[in-house]
């Protein structure tokens, strides 16, 4: 069992790598590797797409490595390999990102990534810190996780999904902010599971065990 964390030079992968490796060890979940090699992505059993920064920059960086981009699409779209997007990696699952300019995403989950606009002007953007999850739909990655558990967020844009059933969890921040999206073999988390202590580690382990 091989889990590939895709490195497309967008942000810090060190803590994600360590968190996934630790949980893989604990549940006997195989090998976790950070890679920018299309061949490794093509033969991985699971794929994790992290991402920090701006949507257009991340989308360009991912597309800039054409072999990698194609390998990712093929593994997820044609071979139905379990996929987890984290933060901007989750946002890239959208059809459109509206940050700075209109940028197309992977188009796996209908909807667009738009600026967070809290209805309370006292609320700051970025939405930064620990917020309590409201689980909208059951999913194997939530095994042992319940509404009210906290996860660590840091973002200024969020995913407004077209199909309500594809939003699996949200948080409240002057209105609903999408926390988890998913369908079929794909799941995306806006928060950082690798920075969310026991709750986050649990979801990482659940993903590594997930057999959709």
């Amino acid at each position: 069992m091989l889990t590939a964390i895709i490195d497309y030079e967008s942000g810090n992968l060190h803590s994600a790598e360590k968190a996934f490796q630790r949980m893989a060890r604990e549940i006997d979940g195989g090998t976790v590797t950070v890679t920018s090699d299309a061949d490794v992505v093509a033969r991985a059993d699971r794929i994790v797409l992290p991402g920090d920064g701006a949507f257009p920059a991340c989308a360009a960086a991912l597309r800039g490595q054409s072999g990698l981009y194609d390998a990712l699409r093929e593994a997820v779209e044609q071979h139905a390999r379990p996929f987890l997007g984290i933060c901007v990696g989750m946002q890239l699952m959208a059809e459109w990102g509206r940050e700075y300019s209109d940028t197309s995403g992977l188009g796996w989950i209908g909807g667009e990534v738009v600026k967070i606009t809290p209805d309370d002007p006292a609320l700051k953007v970025p939405h930064m810190g620990w917020n309590d999850l409201v689980i909208d739909a059951p999913h194997p990655v939530f095994d042992g996780v319940k509404t009210g558990d906290h996860a660590y967020f840091v973002h200024s844009y969020h995913f407004r999904v077209t199909t309500p059933a594809q939003r699996l969890a949200h948080v409240n921040y002057g209105g609903d902010v999408t926390a988890v999206v998913g369908r079929d073999t794909m799941i995306g988390m806006q928060f950082h599971p690798e920075k969310s202590q026991a709750v986050g580690l649990r979801m990482i382990a659940n993903f590594l065990r997930w057999t959709p």
Binding site: H14, S15, H192, E194, K195, Q197, A198, L201
Partner: peptide, 11 residues
Amino acid sequence: VRRTAENCYIP
């Protein structure tokens, strides 16, 4: 920093 990130799962 590297060793801390390997051991801590908070920001």
